[in-house]
């Protein structure tokens, strides 16, 4: 997994609550058996004026000029600023894959859906929860200041704004450790093979019907 330490990135604001995973990556793109290449179809139904299908050449498709990510000032954004309950809906990991493939490394919102939040960490993406007031403040700043960038420091658990303001954020110690070091979960878990086996034996003798 990709490591994450410090990012100085351009911010794009997506001013909607309850952005669901169907919106992040529509279902027709879930037919892929790969885990890459979803970036051009991120927010497909909002981003383009026509209907997208897998295998299409996206470079010639008509863009929706009203959609925020299509505005020139947000090109190259690596930080997505969003509202409450971001990533609600299905468990599709294609959503963080698409965000990552597009170029985002950080998503800031007042809350995230549980499965999406979890899926982000498995892909080197950092989802950050701030209060609704702090998110409001950042929306106002981003919109008012073209080229608005934030510095996200995972080790310090801080977001530094150009006006000198520093926002602290929370992240679970174990997730932070894995992300800072780019650790692969499976590799980590397999360090505990003996413990898993001994649990399994105990479990099997207590509830043998589970192992029939």
């Amino acid at each position: 997994m990709k490591k994450f330490s410090v990012l100085n990135g351009l911010v794009a604001p997506l001013d909607r609550a309850n952005v669901d995973t169907d919106a992040i990556i529509p279902k027709q793109f879930l037919k892929s058996i790969k885990r890459s290449g979803f970036g051009p179809n991120l927010f497909d139904e909002w981003r383009y004026l026509d209907h997208g299908e897998p295998g299409m050449d996206n470079s010639g498709r008509p863009l929706n000029p009203d959609f925020v990510l299509n505005q020139p000032r947000y090109q190259g954004a690596q930080i997505l600023l969003a509202r409450e309950n971001f990533g609600c809906g299905s468990s599709r990991e294609h959503a963080p894959w698409a965000l990552d493939d597009y170029g985002f490394r950080v998503i800031i919102a007042s809350s995230f859906a549980d499965i999406f939040y979890n899926n982000c960490f498995k892909n080197g993406l950092l989802p950050i929860r701030l209060t609704a007031e702090q998110v409001d403040e950042l929306f106002a700043e981003v919109v008012a200041n073209p080229g608005y960038k934030l510095v996200v420091d995972l080790e310090q658990q801080t977001i530094s704004a150009p006006n000198g303001k520093v926002y602290k954020f929370e992240v679970e110690a174990f997730r932070k450790h894995c992300l800072l070091n780019g650790l692969d979960d499976i590799g980590l878990t397999l360090q505990h093979v003996d413990e898993i086996k001994s649990y399994e034996e105990k479990h099997r003798s207590a509830q043998p019907w589970l192992f029939a």
Partner: peptide
Amino acid sequence: AFGIGTSEVEHVMATQCLLMKKS
């Protein structure tokens, strides 16, 4: 019973376990 992402699907296949915090 709960839904998981594809990385976790692979994790369960490989280890029969998941890393998680109690809700």
